[in-house]
Design a protein around this nucleic acid. Structure first.
Lengths: 206, 206
DNA sequence: AGTTTGACAGACTAGTTGGTTTGTTATTAA
DNA sequence: TTAATAACAAACCAACTAGTCTGTCAAACT
C-alpha cells in the first residue's frame, strides 16, 4: 500500500543523525548549549533516547558535532564564502554589509549570530568548545584579512593599514552590532551603527 | 571575649542579602544565568535555603535584583560615570579606551562584559530580563551620545555625523572587541582592533 | 520580663536531566 | 535462508535543582 513511503521513512541512519544535529543547532541558537535539553531534541525529532545515544556518546559530543558539522558550514555559507567572490575589496565589503542587513530576518534579530552566542556562553566554561570555536573565528579572520591584503596589492585599500587588525576590528564590530540588535529586538541598531561602519569602510580606500 | 566579632558576624540582614547578590553576580559572570545554581550560591556564601528564600522569592527574582543592584552600578562605575569627566570628546574617549584596555585583567579577559553576557544569553529567553537589560544599554547609549553632542557644540567633533549612530557604533564595537578577547583568552584582539577603533575616533575630529 | 517578629537553619519534595540498559526490528553479509 | 549487526524504542535510574516547610534563635517592641 504505502511501501515506498515506509521505505523512506523507516531506518535512515544518516538522516536521523542529521535531523538531531539540525534540531540541536536550532535549540542551541534559541536557548544556548546549557539550555539545550536532550529530551527536548528528542521531542522535536520524534526520536527516543535509544536513537540519540546510538549516534552520540553524550550531550557534549553532540555539541562538538553541531559546531563542526552545522555551525562551521553555516558560517562559511553566510560570511566566509561570500568573501571569495569579492573583486573590489571596499565595494565588495560594503555590498556584503548591505546584504547581511537585508538578510537579517525577524527571527535572526531575536537569536543573534550562532557563532558569537556559543562563543560568549561556552568559552569560559569548556576548553573543548573554545578550541573548536576559536578555529572558526580564525578561518573567518584569515579570509577577511586576505581580502584586505588583496585590496592593498590592487591599490584599492590604503597601504598604511594592517589587514589583520582591520579584519579583527570588522568582525568584532559586526558581531557587536548584531548583539545589540538582539537585545533591542529591532534592526534599527543595525541601520544606525551600520551607517558608521560603512563610513569606516569608505575611509579605508586608497 | 569576642562579643563584638560575634555581633557583626551574626544577624545582619543587609549584609547577608548583599553577599548573596555579589556571589550571584560572580556566578552569572562565570557560568551565565542558566548556569547559576542557587545551591552554588549558598555553598559560596555559607548560607542556607532558609536565608536565600527569606531574601528572594525565586531564582528569577535574584536575577532581577542582580541586574538592578549589582550590574547597573557596575556599568555606571566602569563605563558611564567616566564619560561625565570628559572635557574634550575625542581625546577623552581615546583616553577611556586606553584605560579600559589596561584595566582588562586576566580574569576579565576570560569572562567578558557582564552586561553583554547577560544580554546575549537572556534577551531571547525572558522578556523580564530583556527589558531591564535594555534600559541599561539605553542609559549608556544616551550618555555617550551626549558626550558627542557636546563635542559638536564645542566644535571638537565633526558636525556632519549623527551622535546617536556613532554612540551605537562605538558601544557595539567595544562589546564586540571584548567578546573576541573572551574566546581568544588574550588581550591581543583588544590591541589589534583597538588600534583601528582609535583611528576611527580620530576620524571624528572636527 | 514576656511576646512578637524578623532572620535564618536544614530536612524534605517534586520535577527534571543526562545517561543506562534491555529489548526489538530492519538491514546486510555469508 | 540465516546469522550478525546496525538502528533504533522505551522503561528505568541516579544525580541534581528550584522551591517548601517546619523549627530555632536573636533582636525589637511593649
Amino acid at each position: 500500500m504505502n511501501a515506498t513511503v515506509e521505505k523512506t521513512a523507516v531506518r535512515n541512519a544518516d538522516a536521523t543523525r542529521q535531523k538531531i544535529l539540525d534540531v540541536a543547532f536550532e535549540e542551541i541558537l534559541l536557548k544556548g548549549y546549557q539550555g539545550l535539553r536532550v529530551d527536548g531534541v528528542l521531542k522535536k525529532t520524534a526520536l527516543t533516547k535509544g536513537a540519540f545515544y546510538h549516534h552520540f556518546g553524550s550531550k557534549k559530543e553532540l555539541g562538538h558535532a553541531v559546531i563542526e558539522e552545522v555551525l562551521r558550514p553555516w558560517i562559511y555559507e553566510r560570511w566566509i564564502t561570500p568573501l571569495q567572490n569579492i573583486d573590489h575589496s571596499i565595494d565588495g565589503l560594503i555590498e556584503l554589509l548591505k546584504e547581511a542587513r537585508d538578510e537579517m530576518t525577524a527571527c535572526e534579530l531575536h537569536t543573534g549570530c550562532p557563532l558569537n552566542n556559543l562563543t560568549q556562553e561556552m568559552s569560559p566554561l569548556d576548553e573543548s568548545f573554545r578550541t573548536r570555536i576559536v578555529a572558526i573565528w580564525d578561518e573567518w579572520h584569515q579570509a577577511l584579512a586576505e581580502v584586505l591584503e588583496r585590496g592593498q596589492r590592487l591599490e584599492q585599500v590604503k597601504s598604511s593599514l594592517k589587514p589583520e587588525n582591520v579584519a579583527r576590528f570588522l568582525i568584532a564590530t559586526m558581531e557587536g552590532i548584531i548583539g545589540q540588535c538582539k537585545c533591542y529586538m529591532s534592526d534599527a541598531a543595525f541601520y544606525d551603527a551600520g551607517e558608521c561602519l560603512q563610513d569606516y569602510l569608505e575611509s579605508l580606500r586608497a
